[in-house]
């Protein structure tokens, strides 16, 4: 059974001339035990897709099965088997860490008797050993996010959904969260996460989908997606060329030396299967500087979703 199966999902807000289609025919099927990342710029429809999947907003069209149950008809029963780490902090500031977990478990119908013995273990998992009686206001942003992760595990979920779990965290906190998520997948929990950090997706996800404007543009393992959508090598070129910038150089030479070249500001990104001729050429251009690297997910992402700012 797929922990989450979405077919033909459409979500429209508003009506008539005001209508905005935020999700436009999205298909998604998670395999049990995998970590799946949904990548997309702001406003791509990631959070809306998650809200539909949890039955928190009605889909305009399409069908959703969460933990095998139809949504929204049986969304409540399905949510009993799912853990959610929302994008914004929603911990209860009036309670301590332990009380946050106990009270939240109550929403699942779990009794304090069953949950209290598990609290040290849940807090330890989140790297919050001994913080049972700590007040929420005394926690850092990273600690709050980790406590939210522990809270999402009180019901031992089959599927864990995380909406931008590491946005706003420092590198130490991000690495700790990644390590814990890996441990959860190793234990058999299926994970669905949204992110706009490519390295996060590349590190964690068995499979990922890049979405923009409500549609999935590419889907597969990180390697498959890179191989399918982009040349394997990238040379980033910047600096001075004949009194002008890299853009002028690109206009004159790029087409002959690489398969594809994108200019963004004063940097030229040259994509190619063989960088040797290009690097040889650059060796004779003293004003230009360059960085040669393998193509990554971010290159695919920028190719598919464009370089324009989203906000």
């Amino acid at each position: 059974m797929s922990p989450l199966e979405i077919t033909g999902l459409v979500k429209r807000f508003g009506e008539g001339a005001e209508a905005r289609e935020v999700v436009r025919g999205l298909d998604l099927s998670l395999a049990p035990g995998e970590c799946f990342a949904l990548l997309g710029p702001n406003g791509a429809g990631k959070t809306t897709t998650l809200r539909c999947a949890l039955g928190l907003t009605a889909a305009t069209a399409g069908s959703i099965r969460l933990c095998g149950l139809p949504v929204p008809e049986r969304a409540r029963d399905a949510r009993a088997r799912v853990g959610v780490v929302p994008q914004l902090d929603s911990l209860d500031p009036d309670f301590t860490c332990a009380e946050n977990l106990l009270v939240f478990a109550g929403y699942f119908g779990l009794h304090e008797r069953e949950v209290r013995p598990r609290i040290p273990e849940l807090l330890a998992f989140a790297g919050l050993e001994g913080k049972e009686n700590a007040r929420i206001q005394s926690l850092s942003g990273g600690m709050k996010r980790r406590l939210t992760l522990a809270r999402a595990l009180v019901n031992r979920p089959e599927l864990l959904i995380l909406d931008e779990p590491t946005t706003g965290l420092d590198p130490q906190a991000r690495h700790l969260i990644w390590e814990r998520l890996r441990r959860l997948t190793a234990e058999g929990t299926t994970i669905l996460l949204t992110t706009h950090f490519m390295d996060e997706a590349e590190r964690l996800a068995n499979r990922l989908a890049i979405m923009d404007a409500g549609r999935i543009l590419a889907q597969g393992s990180p390697r498959e997606v890179i191989a399918a959508h982009i040349e394997p090598q990238v040379v980033e070129i910047f600096g001075e060329w004949q009194g002008e910038g890299a853009a002028a150089w690109a206009a004159a030479h790029a087409h002959a030396l690489c398969q594809r070249c994108e200019v963004s500001g004063e940097t030229a990104f040259c994509y190619t299967t063989d960088a040797a001729p290009l690097l040889a050429h650059l060796a004779h251009q003293p004003g230009l500087r360059s960085l040669h690297r393998p193509a990554n997910l971010e290159d695919v992402f920028l190719k598919l979703t464009g370089r324009d700012l989203r906000d």
Partner: peptide
């Protein structure tokens, strides 16, 4: 402000 309801709605509570 606290998004308490939002957190609760992620649990099996309507």
């Amino acid at each position: 402000t606290q998004k308490t309801w939002e957190a609760i709605m992620n649990a099996p509570v309507s």
